[in-house]
């Protein structure tokens, strides 16, 4: 504590920002899905993992590079999400949250089990794209290019999503259908299709996070299971359904975790859950949640 090394502090901050990027992308997808489908998507971590595997297979089987995978994997996994919604989740419409939660939890277990069966638990390597190898010496710290890219790109995607939902015509359909789907449909909008696309989009965000994470964390069947627990805590803290709330909370908690790792490493794995407990007591709807 006395010999504060700024180098190490900034290194932990960067780790925090990276984790925060994944938290934000994942909790944003969860928030969008929850708003429209009223479902807590427990399959989110498994679909994030599938995004990473998708990039891995695209590269190693089809020779498709990282940049294309960044577009293709979210489309493919998002498409899979749309199929899951059409064939399974749609049948739960109007039922209690609990049914969606159980179904998606079951889906997560099945998907993770299948991948573990075929790929074990160890990680498969995925190389950093060659344009982003190396890094910048900023004087006070060394900044790897790929990590800088992940933070900037994630933030951009998050803000673009926020903009699309809060400021565009399409977003106004989404917000309105979240409030009163029956009436929006009676205005002539195909709400069931919107719901399918929304789920696909949320899943696509998870897959995108998976691709981004592959070069940093490797590709592992349980990569999503480990992460999603923290992400759910983030969602609880930010408040279910708030778009900006999920983005801000995601990044803030990532940074907070990084700082904790520097100042008091013993607490770094629990700090998010401690905050969750406090928020639940003080503001049960979350920091940004609407009552």
């Amino acid at each position: 504590m006395f010999n504060i090394s700024t180098q190490a502090l900034f290194a932990q901050l960067l780790v925090g920002l990276i984790n925060g990027s994944f938290y934000a992308l994942l909790s944003l997808g969860l928030a969008v899905i929850f708003g429209m489908l009223n479902i807590i998507n427990f399959a989110h971590g498994a679909l994030y993992m599938m995004g990473a595997f998708c990039a891995y297979f695209l590269l190693n089987v089809l020779g498709v590079n990282y940049w294309l995978a960044l577009i293709l994997a979210p489309l493919l996994i998002g498409g899979l999400g749309a199929v899951l919604e059409r064939t399974m989740l749609q049948r739960l419409a109007g039922l209690d949250h609990l049914y969606g939660l159980l179904l998606t939890f079951g889906l997560a277990l099945i998907i993770q089990g299948l991948f573990q069966n075929y790929f074990g638990s160890s990680g498969l390597p995925y190389a950093i794209p060659q344009q982003l190898t190396g890094g910048q010496n900023l004087g006070f710290m060394f900044l790897p290019n790929y990590r800088a890219w992940v933070v900037v790109f994630s933030l951009t995607v998050c803000l673009a999503t926020w903009f699309a939902i809060e400021k565009t015509k399409l977003g106004s359909y989404l917000r309105a259908a979240t409030e009163n789907p029956t009436l929006v449909r009676a205005f002539g909008i195909n709400v069931p299709r919107m719901i399918t696309l929304t789920y696909g989009f949320g899943v696509g965000l998870a897959a995108l996070a998976g691709v981004l994470s592959a070069p940093i964390n490797q590709v592992r069947p349980l990569m999503g299971a480990d992460l999603i627990i923290v992400v759910f805590a983030v969602v609880v803290i930010g408040g279910m359904g708030s778009i900006m709330g999920s983005i801000v909370t995601g990044f803030a908690l990532g940074i907070l975790e990084g700082l904790t790792k520097y100042f008091y490493p013993e607490a770094s794995n629990t700090v998010v859950f401690v905050i969750m407990a406090i928020v639940l007591m003080v503001k049960p709807n979350g920091l940004f949640g609407r009552a």
Partner: peptide, 24 residues
């Protein structure tokens, strides 16, 4: 027909509870 298809034929409703959207 589903209500979105009915709306597209040229019917519209102003509901009893007005149905103004709070998030818009």
């Amino acid at each position: 027909l589903t209500s979105d298809r009915i709306a597209r034929l040229g019917l519209a409703i102003c509901p009893e509870e007005r149905g103004i959207f709070a998030s818009l």
